[in-house]
Write a protein that binds this DNA or RNA. Structure first.
Lengths: 252, 252
DNA sequence: CGTAGGTTTGAAAGCCTTCAACGACGGTGG
DNA sequence: CCACCGTCGTTGAAGGCTTTCAAACCTACG
């Protein structure tokens, strides 16, 4: 493991310790995520914890699934940040969605012949491959988990809608701030970040590919936000200093 | 019914007559759409045809569901073009997806408390409201239909991904041409258009809201395409004159 | 014949991109 | 321990795509 990895992992570890909810204990981020959507029994939780076998540590900026690959089982992100993306022949890449710890992707894609998009790590990630059968088994025998998965999917779709909206009608600043809100909120939901501060192990290139603007412009927008005293971002750590003003910038 | 409506309806009717597939007969566009995803028995088809009760003719630019409404049953578009959209307080509107004849929306949204987006007609539409119970019933008793619905949903998600990608990394021309391709391809799939020609009852404002650019710019891009002899668009009818060049413009 | 909605046009300005180069930082290897 | 190197961040200048504002045109409809 490179020291880059250990640096980033420790970022998450630090945030992981303090405020553990009632469901936590030994349960992983998946249980924490799903538990927020539907009440899970200890039996459900046990089943979930058995899901994450075949873990692996993956370095940053590595493909988990390449565009065009044959459809296979699902992935579970245990640590780090990954993404779905589309890459054009021109080399341009658009990130479609972020995959954060606790995200299970993609139970439903089984019916698709081939992946029409790729999945790649952005930061170093601990990832578990989950066979399709295991997911189906889980859904069949644990209705509460199935419900939570459905709700979690709906949430992801809603996020995708607002992501698309931001791309369609939003200046660069707005898109960037919204992205920061989304990341912090989602990390917060699984206990990996504070509401206004958390790890952000993404490069400016990654951010640019999320919100559909050039890297250079990401840099300039960031500096403007910093100069205005609205946020801090350094060393892979993001702090929102003036949430009210930031919300005004994000609009709506 | 206004004469605008009758004009547009007849556009669809004309295209509807000629090449009818084996599944057609009296089956509506929904059956045609779903039949493409999974083989349906005559029993399945009968069940589908009973779904579309409570039809109504709706004028163009009318809300079927408003953002913030309580979640309810599904809609079935029988004729015309509708859309999902998000509207900002600023008045800016982003269209998320088009709903074409045969599209059923939204069997899955039942678990969401409130609609986070609206649904509105763009052209005059014939629409049927489908109670949630009817959809669930259909899925429970007609596995082939359930499968077709799942596949159709996957297809919609794939479209949403490429829509998002176009917004993120594409010039205005590219986005517009891709939109035209999508519309013609989808209409073609349900027998309502030729591969290179079909009805396009959308205003330039609608097009602008689909691809996230200003109305004025839609107009300028359109004229460029016309001047280059790549397409014709007038009187609600679109003709692609040079598919090869258009595909080059759309990229990838 | 007037009105409303949709389309077209021009000019000015703005947001963002591109290209290119430099600075900063941490890790690797000597 | 220091030098080298790659990745990431930063900066400037020039240009391009797109927006905004405003006004004119056109067509279908009442």
């Amino acid at each position: 493991m490179t020291s880059l990895q250990s640096r980033l992992q420790s970022q998450f570890d630090i945030a992981l310790r303090p405020p553990l909810g009632p469901l936590d204990g030994m349960a992983g981020p998946l249980a924490r995520r799903l538990g927020a959507h539907a009440p899970l029994s200890s039996d459900d939780l046990a089943a979930l914890s058995h899901l994450a076998i075949r873990e692996a540590m993956i370095t940053a900026h590595t493909d988990l699934v390449r565009q065009g690959d044959a459809a296979e089982g699902a992935f579970l992100i245990l640590e780090g940040i990954a993404c779905r993306y589309v890459q054009r022949a021109s080399g341009a890449r658009q990130i479609l969605a972020l995959l954060l710890p606790g995200d299970l992707c993609d139970p439903d894609l089984a019916h698709l012949e081939r992946w029409d998009h790729g999945i790649a790590t952005l930061s170093p990630c601990r990832v578990a491959r989950v066979p399709q059968a295991a997911v189906e088994d889980l859904i069949a025998h644990h209705p509460a988990v199935a419900l939570a998965l459905r709700r979690s999917k709906l949430e992801a779709e809603a996020r995708s809608r607002s992501w698309l909206t931001a791309l369609g009608i939003g200046l660069a600043v707005e898109r960037l701030v919204r992205l920061f809100f989304e990341i912090l909120d989602r990390l917060h939901a699984v206990g990996l970040a504070d509401r206004n501060e958390g790890p952000l192990p993404l490069t400016q290139v990654d951010l640019a590919e999320c919100i559909g603007i050039s890297t250079v412009h990401v840099n300039r927008v960031l500096q403007e936000l910093r100069r205005a005293g609205l946020l801090e971002l350094k060393g892979g750590r993001l702090r929102l200093l003036d949430r009210a003003s930031l919300e005004a910038v994000a609009g709506e």
